[in-house]
């Protein structure tokens, strides 16, 4: 059985936990360093990135997580989670794990009135298109040579990417009943040989 930790400091961690369980994994909530033991991977949910990074510091999770990620621990960040994974942020961002070689701009589409949903073609998931929900979402502005872009908006903006055992999406697969992205994380990122 594969056990996935879901960072449960703030945000929509319950939806991720339920999606992991629908996808055949076991989910465990992570609030303190001890909760990291025995995990095969971690999901950083959507939420407010500034809130989550501050709580990571006060909970003593930032340093242990940086070390784990440095050793190749699988991590998937959605929206706020993508911001926490990024090496490069716009001036408003607070550096957190600095693990993934992507440049990320927060609130890239504007305020809540500009939040949207759209169907995306994502080759690694196959057909049909994936219904993606963007909420005050960030975008990927730059990608390093090790990074593979998994999905783009119609205008070419990258919104999902993988680098080794790190996965990032600007949108929220946990808010839809479609479990393909969670299964992709379990089967092709966490359990990868």
């Amino acid at each position: 059985m594969t056990t996935i930790g879901v960072l449960a400091l703030q945000g929509d961690f319950r939806e991720h936990r339920e999606a992991v369980e629908r996808s055949g994994g076991t989910a465990a909530e992570v609030r303190l360093p001890n909760d990291l033991e025995g995990l095969d991977g971690l999901i950083i949910p959507g939420g407010e990135s500034t809130t989550i990074v501050r709580l990571m510091r006060t909970s003593g999770l930032l340093e242990p997580l940086r070390k784990l990620v440095g050793r190749g621990f699988p991590v998937w960040g959605t929206c706020a989670g993508m911001i926490l994974l990024a090496k490069h942020l716009d001036a408003t961002g607070i550096p957190a794990l600095e693990a993934m070689d992507i440049g990320v701009r927060r609130n890239a589409f504007g305020r809540q009135a500009d939040s949207f949903e759209v169907d995306l073609r994502i080759p690694v998931l196959g057909d049909p298109p994936f219904h993606a929900i963007f909420i005050r979402a960030p975008v990927i502005e730059a990608v390093g040579p090790e990074v593979e872009v998994l999905a783009r908006l119609a205008d070419g903006t990258p919104v999902a990417a993988r680098q080794g055992r790190l996965l990032a999406t600007a949108f929220h697969p946990e808010l839809t009943p479609d479990s393909r992205f969670h299964r992709f994380f379990l089967d092709h990122v966490v359990r990868r040989a």
Binding site: G47, E48, F134, I135
Partner: peptide
């Protein structure tokens, strides 16, 4: 402005 993105922002605020 769909119901999903309206409810969705509140879901991002949870635990906060």
């Amino acid at each position: 402005g769909t119901w999903t993105v309206k409810v969705g922002l509140a879901q991002m605020l949870k635990g906060g």
